[in-house]
Design a binder for these strands. Structure first.
Length: 493
RNA sequence: GGAGAGGUGGCAGAGUGGUCGAAUGCGCCGGAUUCGAAAUCCGGUUUACGGUUCUACCGUAACGUGGGUUCGAAUCCCACCCUCUCCGCCA
């Protein structure tokens, strides 16, 4: 989330920057109107609250002394009702403002080149020379198929498209890669190893920015199973009628009845966005599920779990930067990638990754980004894989980042470099959502900067090793660095 | 899944309707004392949001979460979440 001050005091400039950098149009007039109203309503609400408190305190004082307070009591009678209206109005406004703010991406760092898409990315360095093959190069699918090492058909049988079964020496090589990466990061780069949950709640997904905007990219799991799916038909009909009559109180009562039946927490008021949806949509049941279901999400990257470890914490400034790493499974719905990279295991619904996360002081974070990118590059160097490092342009960066380096590994079968790591500095964007802070020199809590990077994607590293280390006879040489993890095996055949 | 206990400031822990944002102790910071230290004494020590005359002041909110009752809720009522203990099941 951007600093709210940018959306209040500097809205015009902020809108310009977002348009220039990411081609994003801010709803400026809507924000201005909501903000003006919020200010007025908040001031009025707080005045009413102050008034209530003053009278209640005075009543308490008088009663304590055994004095009569009936005049004050009479004055107080009307306040709760006025206050209820004002508080609801304020909550609705804040909800609407927040819903907009939570969907606005970060503003790129000044060192980031402006560009619309990946063609605007800038190569910053290159390492290693692609090998010359004196035989026809096979891609990882062909290499894997010969001995059943990579089995896409079985993956499809068990699960569907974008799943692959690994077998034998290649399965072991995959495991060796993950072990090797973890050992390098913990042993040489100063990271602490973590093992984290793969299934996380909504707050966690909001903290790192996957929610609310990118729900379609995630796999979700209904909590407590599918029995919560059943919504009584009569209750539904009654609710539909209340919505048509625009009767909010009745709708709320009915909603709470449904929530109670499902064993869920009841609502104090209907959230603004939910009310809008129920009004607009014929698909009432789908809307109810969306709002009432308790669900968890499979992480698309361990960045989510690792970064959220500092959510709602005030860290000791002396301890920064924190360096965290984890090897984890990652799950991605790949909703927007239909038809892309359908061959082989480049783009899977489930894959493994060793993730790097740093929690840094603001003045250090850009130095830390360079360092972390170096840590990821180091893995490829040690594996003897050619790569290049790209500075992403403004239009190609992710939602939360201010600056991102992609590391691309050479794939001989494609004759090109393919992304194997992405290292980003999010500055305070995630920290603000998470309320992740440290105590600065003045003793005041200040938002930390968060960084994350792949160190690196295990599945893609496997592909890169298979293709770059293939032999004419279809066997695969084991890179020097991995041999200790392969029981000394030098060749998979 | 069954039974029970419990969730309060950095920690421990009091508070069962009204000067309670919250006693007390520990910790931490500053000061006094001391050659110095310990001990002792004194003072201070949450966060978020908003307003403004914007390194300050004023206000609001927060005692697991969300509601309700009330002029007034940490305290009463309801729902949910989480933790702990015992039993059952299970990798």
């Amino acid at each position: 989330m951007l600093d709210p001050a940018l959306l209040r005091q500097h809205l015009a400039v902020t809108a310009e920057r977002l348009w220039a950098a990411r081609g994003l149009e801010l709803p400026v007039s809507e924000l201005e109107a909501l903000e003006a109203e919020r200010k007025a309503v908040q001031v009025r609400t707080q005045e009413l609250q102050a008034n209530r408190n003053r009278l209640a305190k005075e009543i308490g004082l008088r009663k304590g002394k055994g004095l009569d307070a009936s005049d004050l009591l009479a004055q107080s009678q009307a306040i709760p009702q006025q206050l209820k209206g004002a508080e609801e109005q304020l909550a609705t406004l804040q909800e609407r403002l927040n819903a907009i703010a939570m969907r606005i991406p970060n503003i790129p760092h000044e060192s980031v080149p402006t560009g619309a898409d990946e063609t605007g990315n800038v190569e910053v360095r290159r390492h290693g020379t692609p090998r010359n093959f004196d035989f026809a190069v096979r891609d990882h699918v062909e290499i894997g198929a010969r001995h059943g090492w990579l089995d896409g058909d079985s993956g499809a049988k068990l699960s569907g498209a974008r799943f692959t079964v690994l077998r034998g020496g290649v399965a072991r090589l995959h495991r060796a890669l993950a072990q090797f990466m973890l050992d390098v990061h913990t042993g040489e780069h100063g990271y602490t190893e973590y093992n984290v949950p793969l299934l996380v709640n909504q707050e966690t997904m909001q903290g790192t920015g996957q929610l609310p905007k990118f729900e379609d990219d995630l796999f979700e799991v209904p909590l407590g199973g599918y029995r919560h799916l059943a919504i009584d038909g009569q209750a539904q009909a009654a609710l539909r009628s209340a919505i048509m009559r625009d009767d909010r109180d009745d709708a709320l009562a009915l909603l709470n009845g449904i929530a109670g039946d499902l064993g869920l927490q009841t609502l104090g008021r209907v959230p603004a966005a939910m009310w809008d949806q129920m009004h607009d949509s014929e698909a009432l049941v789908a809307t109810l599920h969306r709002w009432l279901w308790k669900r968890m999400y499979l992480i698309p990257t361990a960045e989510v779990s690792l970064t959220n470890l500092v959510r709602d914490e005030i860290l000791d400034g002396e301890a920064l930067p924190l360096r965290l790493t984890a090897h984890s499974l990652c799950f991605r719905a790949e909703a927007g990638a239909a038809g892309r990279d359908t061959r082989g295991m480049i783009r899977q619904h489930q894959f493994e990754k060793v993730e790097l996360v740093q929690i840094a002081r603001p003045e250090q974070s850009h130095v830390q980004l360079e360092e972390m990118t170096g840590h990821a590059e180091n893995i490829l160097r040690r594996l003897g894989l050619p790569f290049r490092t790209m500075l992403l342009c403004s239009g190609d960066m992710g939602f939360a980042a201010v600056k991102t380096y992609d590391i691309e590994v050479w794939l001989p079968s494609q004759g090109t470099y393919r992304e194997i790591s992405s290292c980003s500095n999010c500055e305070s964007f995630q920290a603000r959502r998470m309320q992740a802070r440290f105590r600065n020199a003045a003793g005041k809590p200040e938002l930390v900067h968060t960084l994350n990077g792949s160190g690196v994607a295990v599945g893609r590293a496997l592909i890169a090793v298979m293709e770059n280390y293939q032999n004419a006879d279809g066997s695969i040489a084991v890179p020097e660095a991995l041999r200790p993890y392969m029981g000394g095996v030098t060749r998979i055949e």
